[in-house]
Simulated scan of single mutants.
Amino acid sequence: MFSDYYEQIEAIVLNLTLLVLFAVMGYAIHDVLKKNDVPMVGRAVVYLVLFLGAAGFLAKGLIQIFYESSGV
Rank of each mutant, 00 (worst) to 15 (best):
S70N: 11
L52R: 06
E7Q: 10
Q8V: 10
E68P: 00
L58Y: 12
V72N: 13
I9M: 12
E7G: 05
L21Q: 06
A23E: 00
F51W: 10
A28I: 08
P39S: 06
A55W: 08
F57N: 04
A54L: 06
F51M: 08
L50D: 02
P39T: 00
K60V: 12
R43I: 02
L21S: 06
L62N: 09
L33H: 12
L21W: 00
Y5G: 07
G53S: 06
T17W: 01
V20G: 00
L62A: 07
I12W: 00
G53M: 09
S70K: 13
Y6G: 06
K60L: 13
L21G: 02
K34G: 07
I12M: 03
G71K: 02
V20Y: 02
I9K: 11
H30M: 04
A55L: 09
F2Q: 12
F66W: 10
V38T: 14
Q8H: 12
V41M: 08
N36Y: 08
S69Y: 14
K60Y: 15
I65G: 04
Y6R: 15
G53P: 00
V72W: 15
I29H: 02
L48E: 00
L18R: 13
G42C: 05
M1R: 12
G42F: 03
S70P: 03
L58H: 07
Y5C: 07
Y47M: 05
M1I: 14
S70V: 14
V32P: 01
M1A: 13
L21Y: 01
A28F: 08
L52M: 12
A54C: 07
L48H: 04
S69V: 06
Y6K: 15
V45P: 01
A11Y: 08
V32E: 13
A11G: 03
E7M: 07
I12D: 04
Y27H: 10
T17L: 09
V45K: 07
N36W: 09
A59I: 04
E10P: 00
H30S: 09
Y27D: 02
V32L: 15
E7W: 10
G42I: 07
A55Q: 04
K34N: 13
A11Q: 06
E10T: 15
I63A: 11
A55K: 03
K35L: 07
I12A: 03
G71M: 01
V46Q: 10
A28P: 01
L52T: 11
M25A: 13
V46G: 07
I63K: 05
L62I: 05
L50S: 05
V13Y: 04
S70G: 11
A23Q: 01
I9C: 09
L18H: 06
V41H: 03
A59N: 02
E68Y: 07
D31Q: 14
F66V: 15
V24F: 00
G61I: 00
L52G: 02
I65C: 08
E10V: 14
R43M: 02
Y67K: 15
S70C: 10
F51K: 05
I29L: 14
V72K: 15
K34D: 14
T17I: 03
K34P: 11
A54N: 03
L58C: 08
G71P: 06
S3M: 13
F2H: 15
N36S: 15
P39A: 04
Q8Y: 09
L50T: 08
L58N: 06
E7T: 03
V41N: 03
V41S: 05
F22I: 02
A44Y: 08
G42L: 05
L58M: 11
E7D: 14
L62V: 04
I12H: 00
I29T: 12
S69I: 05
T17N: 13
R43V: 03
G42T: 08
